[in-house]
Amino acid sequence: MELDGKIIGIISNDFKEEELSGKKVKDIITKKTDEALKMVKLDSSIKEELFDNLSSRDKGKVILASHLHEKEIKLVNFSKGMIKKDLEYFNNLFKRIISYGRKIILIDKNTELFLNCVDHIYIIENNTIIYETKNIFDAILTKYIDLPKIVEFILASKENGIRLDYYVEIDELLKAIYRIKS
């Protein structure tokens, strides 16, 4: 399946999370282990840990670290266990990675990860693309997924007759609301 974009967001249940049970971190990240761990904000002391004993947050980071050298990085449910601060960090890291000519495919349940990050979004069912868009503010997406909260708010405002620009930062949205209300 040919997908356009450099950072691609996919909504689908067709893809399985990687099965790494029983392996140690050092056996999962086999290339430039220390550098890769540093890049995903993990301490190198984690190398001896068994994957099963990691938190879900660290599992996602370890999987990313293991794929960093690949031309096309595919991550399934990467955002599971992540906190807001992580999403901001990895959003920036993904942009840095693609600047080296790589491609990132994020198959994820949490569209907050896609905000201000992905350039294409695909809805895939039974290995078939059933919808694609470049715009996370595309209201048709609500048929398939929950959109990021800021997008939900802007679309709900639009339904109430208030047309706001497509802000992705709360501070910009706040200023816009203040301008309208004052």
Binding site: I83, K85, K149, F153, A156, L174, Y178, K181
Partner: peptide
């Protein structure tokens, strides 16, 4: 701690500060 606040709570706290709202809201609608 890096969790932040739920978006709607965060937005309404800030709007309350700027006197656009008089209480905090917990859902978009």
């Amino acid at each position: 701690l890096g969790f932040g606040l739920p978006f709607i709570v965060d937005l309404s706290i800030q709007l309350e500060f700027y006197e656009c709202l008089d209480k905090v809201y917990f859902d978009v609608d």
